[in-house]
Design a protein around this nucleic acid. Structure first.
Length: 593
RNA sequence: GCGCCCGUAGCUCAACCGGAUAGAGCAUCGGCCUUCUAAGCCGAGGGUUGCAGGUUCAAGUCCUGCCGGGCGCACCA
């Protein structure tokens, strides 16, 4: 990273409140006063159209309705009562039925910009109320290889973790992998049949998907094997050392595979974040006992269940949450209750986010409700299912290849990198091959991540190789390309120019870019609260667009010195916003591409 | 049957607790490289936001009812 010289003036200020929060506060105060209603919401948003100014306050009309005032009159009173201690507002005007359109002073924007150049990390100030937050994400089943279905939860959870950490929260990542289900009996027996020390086994474990399928085929076709497999589960869960060690061998192999994928994806999950189902094995009996002691447990058809009035099944019958099967086995819900308890009382988390497929929303509603009813979660903890939609095929069904198997995540990434290498080799043949390979690895993988992160997480989306691996338009390469253009400028600026300070704005493209760059913290705040990474993607795409337009319209290196300095400073400010924003998405910038 | 989610341009998606004339990308057509990386920029066409009501100064957004799609609903995770 290039070091950024501090501005010469000693008057640099740092701003701990972003522009939107600042305006919300001063307009809100003025509105509350003018309407004599404490805590009135000014509803300040960025202007919906440029001719309205930079920001607009939409809240006056609603408040006017409540206090029986004419909206435009009230808006005038609000403007008259503004106490703008930062001197940020150039003009505030009433428009239409009672909007307040706000235009900001160039010099105030410049002051904020220089503050960021002086201390780049001040661009995203920490949250004033740091919390402890669990982010449960990725959570693959270790019996099989990771497939495209695991992409969303992995990258969305990683992004949210990064955003929350950046805001100063203590984030506890948890990877709730499936490692304890009945399938593991089958896999253990299959391993034993191959001979645990044989080289065959080692080779077969190289490809978990094939291994799983082979075991499954045997399970389906060989009833003696199936019996042994079922026995293996019992032995395993009963703690038989021989079975445990076979199981451990498999889990290690599978975890290693996951870590490989995480490494390629540049996802922060480590083995230390593993929160496997098996971890809770010894707690499950206690969970059931506790439910019984609290009088919440009922027996139904031999299974032990919790019935809550708010859940109804088919025909309006009460719907149970089964915590223990009639054969004595425990279930997903039981494990999740144990996990809630740990997160709430051992970790003492303020929020616990579950980044999990939307199809499990009923399950989480039930687990959260039972946990609250049974006191397994404190009253304060916020339990949130961060649901995401399914990746669909062209046929509108959940994505599968023709053979019926899901596409391996590793294969998708390989394909992305291959295509990126072809592209970079075509675009920039002068770079040596090693660098082209590094660029391709970055571009290919980040394109896949970005393609997912940039979509609203609630929607199902159709998987399509060409959009997933597109390198034009609203894609990771567009953002990376903006960065390389900036870096190229900064490389070429030479040593003669060490001043890194904004002085005056002469072109509208400069102003638009500066304002946009300063808005990063506003978006980060929303993402932390609402957990929608696509908002950050949209913002970064707009920021890059603002830079591209600036780049086309405003020559930098050839401009006269004063303007050149400001434009270079603007470029490095933009670089900071892009770099820091991309870092929150888990994307590293490139020097050239 | 009940519940959750979704329905926006030919395709894939946006639209910040309801805000002014619904925005991008891809695809199509047309312009811009002897000047800082053309993975770029500028422009054109393309919409009754599934349908019908309702609430509101204001509805893609909230409410009701239909239509269409996805998912879930007792011992899998």
């Amino acid at each position: 990273m290039s070091t950024i010289p501090a501005p010469r003036k000693s008057t640099v200020r740092l701003f701990m409140e972003n522009i939107k929060d600042y305006l919300s506060r001063i307009v809100g105060d003025a509105l509350s006063e003018a309407a004599d209603i404490a805590g009135s919401d000014p509803n300040v948003i960025t202007a919906s159209r440029p001719e309205f100014g930079d920001y607009q306050a939409n809240g006056v009309m609603a408040v006017a309705g409540r206090c029986c005032r004419k909206p435009r009159e009230l808006a005038e009173a609000v403007i008259a009562g503004l106490r703008d201690e930062e001197d940020l507002v150039a003009s505030a005007e009433v428009a239409g039925p009672g909007f307040i359109n706000i235009k900001l002073r160039d010099q105030a924007l410049i002051a904020r910009g220089n503050g960021v150049l002086h201390d780049p990390l001040s661009l995203i100030p920490p949250d004033s109320q740091p919390r402890k937050i669990v982010v449960d994400h990725s959570s693959p089943n270790l019996a099989k290889e990771m497939h495209v279905g695991h992409l969303r939860g992995t990258v969305i959870g990683d992004c949210l973790s990064r955003v929350l950490e950046r805001l100063g929260h203590e984030v506890i990542r948890q990877n709730h992998v499936g490692d304890w289900g009945t399938q593991f009996g089958m896999l253990i027996s299959y391993m034993q049949d191959l001979g645990e020390d044989s080289s065959d086994l080692q080779t077969e474990l190289e490809d978990l998907e094939t291994f799983y399928r082979a075991a499954k085929d045997k399970f389906d076709s060989d009833s003696a094997f199936a019996d042994r497999a079922r026995l293996s589960v019992v032995k395993l869960q009963g703690g038989d050392p021989e079975y445990l060690s076979a199981w451990q061998r498999f889990i290690d192999e599978s975890s290693r595979h996951c870590q490989e994928i995480y490494g390629r994806l540049d996802v922060g999950l480590t083995l230390a974040d593993l929160d496997a189902e098996s971890r809770y094995n010894d707690d499950l009996e206690g969970i059931v006992r506790e439910l019984e002691e609290k009088g919440l447990l009922q027996e139904s058809d031999g299974a032990r269940c919790v019935f809550l009035p708010e859940f109804k099944g088919k025909d309006g019958e009460p719907l149970p949450v089964i915590v223990q099967k009639s054969d004595g086995g425990y279930l997903y819900s039981t494990t999740d209750l144990a996990a809630v308890r740990m997160r709430s009382f051992d970790f003492k988390a303020d929020r616990s986010l579950y980044v999990v497929d939307a199809r499990q929303s009923l399950h989480f509603q039930q687990v959260f409700a039972v946990a609250q009813a049974a006191g397994m979660a404190s009253a304060e903890i916020s339990l949130e299912h961060i649901a995401y939609g399914t990746i669909m095929g062209k046929d509108g069904r959940p994505y599968k290849t023709r053979s019926g198997d899901s596409v391996k995540l590793a294969d998708l990434l390989d394909e992305a990198v291959t295509r990126a290498f072809e592209l970079v080799s075509g675009k920039n043949p002068d770079l040596d091959e090693d660098e082209r390979r590094l660029i391709a690895e970055n571009v290919g993988i980040t394109s896949v991540k970005y393609a997912d992160l940039s979509k609203n997480r609630m929607s199902d989306y159709v998987f399509d190789w060409s959009t997933m691996l597109s390198f034009e338009g609203n894609t990771a390469p567009y953002l990376l390309y903006a960065c390389t253009r900036i870096k190229s400028l900064l490389r070429k600026q030479g040593d003669d120019c060490s001043v890194n300070e904004l002085t005056e704005l002469t072109q509208p493209e400069e102003r638009a870019l500066l304002l946009k760059a300063l808005q990063l913290p506003e978006i980060v705040e929303i993402v932390a609260r609402e957990c929608y990474p696509n908002l950050l993607c949209n913002y970064l795409y707009e920021l890059s667009g603002a830079f591209m337009r600036f780049y086309e319209a405003c020559p930098v290196l050839k401009a006269e010195p004063r303007i050149r300095n400001t434009r270079l400073a603007l470029a490095s400010l933009t670089e900071q916003a892009l770099k820091q924003g991309l870092d929150l998405l888990g994307i590293n910038t490139l020097e050239r591409m």
